[in-house]
Design a protein around this nucleic acid. Structure first.
Length: 211
DNA sequence: CACCAGGCAAGTA
DNA sequence: TACTTGCATGGT
């Protein structure tokens, strides 16, 4: 057992399964991945509920609805004008490359799909990897602000690592397992929210105190 | 009141 | 290349 494997075991024993990603379908998970950019899930959930209650949560509907109307519905998720455009950009790319067939889009290899996603304006590394892991069920590790903060605050990595370096560290230390990557990222977010808060130098009573 | 949340792109030097 | 800024709602 290496260090990152031990940390996973500790977190899982402490917090239990996090049941990520909330969403009824891969499409809904993909939409949620864009809406949750720099925003808490509570606000995203409201936006998705809006779309559902007006029966707008489908590929063709979001494709065809005027962007201003889409923005109005996703307002609670914040940055709604940007995110409306980003959703349109994403669906347009899937339309152009795979005729709007999400399963076909997700059938590409992990690296090809990642490349496709990153070409979309508004999809960066974390959103791309969230879609890969949680919607397309590809074995990729999602890195986020919590991941940096937690590892750096516990002196588990040196500062200045970039997204891919941290991602590779996890992927080189862990078996390639979708369920494991799913749970691990969710557990880091949980730990971050509960103990490893922003703007504080320490994490009192953190389950990782021994590491 | 201030600060933050499951980021990203564009602008500046 | 390495910062900085705009985007924006809702909870604590």
């Amino acid at each position: 057992m290496n260090r990152l494997q031990e940390i996973f075991t500790t977190l899982f024993k402490h917090f239990g399964p996090q049941n990520w990603w909330p969403g009824d379908t891969p499409f809904e998970v993909m939409i949620g991945a864009v809406l949750t950019q720099n925003t808490n899930w509570n606000n995203v959930s409201r936006a998705i509920d809006n779309l559902k209650s007006y029966n707008l949560l489908s590929f063709e509907t979001i494709e065809n609805i005027p962007v201003e109307i889409l923005a109005e519905h996703i307002r609670p998720s914040g940055y709604f004008n940007q995110k409306a455009i980003r959703l349109k950009n994403l669906l347009q790319a899937i339309r152009e490359t795979h005729e709007g067939d999400l399963d076909a889009f997700f059938s590409a290899s992990t690296s090809d799909l990642r490349e496709q996603l990153l070409k979309v304006k508004g999809i960066g590394p974390e959103t791309a990897d969230s879609i890969l892991l949680y919607a397309a069920q590809k074995p990729i590790f999602v890195v986020d602000a919590y991941t940096f903060r937690i590892l750096s605050r516990h002196d588990l990595v040196e500062d200045g690592m970039d997204y891919h370096e941290l991602q590779n560290l996890f992927m080189d230390s862990l078996p390639e397992d979708v369920a494991l990557f799913n749970e691990y990222h969710a557990l880091l977010v949980k730990l971050g929210k509960d103990f490893c808060k922003k703007g504080k130098p320490l994490c009192p009573n953190c389950p990782l105190e021994n590491f």
